[in-house]
Simulated assay, not measured.
Amino acid sequence: MVFERGTRLLAGAVVVACMVLLGPSAPDGSLSAGPMPVGTARDFVPNRVMTWNICNPCGRGNADRAAEIAELAPQVVGLQEACRRDVERVRDHLENLYGLDYHVEYGTVLQNWGRCGGVPWNPGGYGQAILSAEPMTDHVNVEYPDGGSEDRGFMAVTTLVDDRPVRVFNTHLAQRRQEAVRAEQTAVIAAEIARHDRAIVLGDFNAVPDTPELTPIWALAEDTDPGCRPAQAGACAPTTDWQSKFDYVFLRGVTSLGHRVRQSPHSDHHVLHSDVDVT
């Protein structure tokens, strides 16, 4: 019996090793259908970016979150409603189960035991996070002067996308029915975006495309979906379970090559990812 069990383990190890050697399921790096089996190794897609509000607290497993990210293998991932401990575990799963070794920076805006656990005197950090296949520099974390009903902010880093340096922002604006607060927040982040000729802005803006508070962002950048503009708000694919377009990949000096919105069973927000051309 011990011999048979050892033989099965050896066979499994050989299968995993073959997956590592073969890499992606297709020569062009295109995605295979369905969830990735644990142990499947793949390469980063160097021009792919992704934004996802992972929903916290929602009681979802970090292994499931990692599997969602691994199936797409983006170069850069922006997460919102992210507990630092959860992101650490997601990052570990991505490396240990799928061979995707991400660098991580955090945009913590509050310490919250109710959302992120921990102990009362050392609660978990909550806010945004950016995962990048390449190292990140010039990291800044900014809390908005008024977060609304909960502290909110944005973070920014410089990293490589499509093998070129790009300023990447990640934000989460004030909750719904707080339009005036969001208008103040977009004015703050727009002033920073305007300083860069080339930028990718990821996030949950809690606002549909034709709301006035997004006007400063639209003046600087375009949505990754060329058919999604304020005047065509009804044509924008919804990114939430309540059928609203709240999540964006805004591009400044960067061209969209394609995008996809994919429902996730692990969050009340869908996964939004985009392949881009930075040249």
Rank of each mutant, 00 (worst) to 15 (best):
L10Y: 06
V14E: 04
V16G: 00
G23W: 10
P27R: 03
P27Y: 07
L31H: 12
V45G: 04
P46W: 03
I54N: 01
R60H: 10
R60F: 08
A66E: 05
A67G: 14
I69P: 13
I69V: 15
R84N: 03
D86N: 08
E88R: 10
E88L: 08
H93A: 07
L94H: 09
N96K: 12
N96S: 10
Y102Q: 02
G118F: 00
W121K: 01
N122H: 11
G125Y: 00
Y126F: 14
G127W: 04
I130M: 13
P135H: 03
H139D: 00
V140A: 11
N141W: 03
V142N: 13
P145V: 11
R152P: 02
R164P: 00
L173S: 08
R177M: 14
Q178A: 07
V181E: 06
E184R: 15
V188F: 11
V188N: 04
A191R: 15
A191P: 07
R195F: 00
R195D: 12
D197T: 06
D197H: 12
A199S: 14
A199V: 13
V201S: 05
A207M: 07
V208H: 02
V208F: 03
D210K: 11
T211D: 02
P212F: 04
P212K: 12
E213A: 12
L214N: 06
W218I: 07
A221E: 10
D225G: 12
A237I: 12
T240K: 02
Q243I: 06
K245H: 13
L251H: 03
V254K: 02
V261H: 13
P265H: 08
V276M: 07
T279N: 06
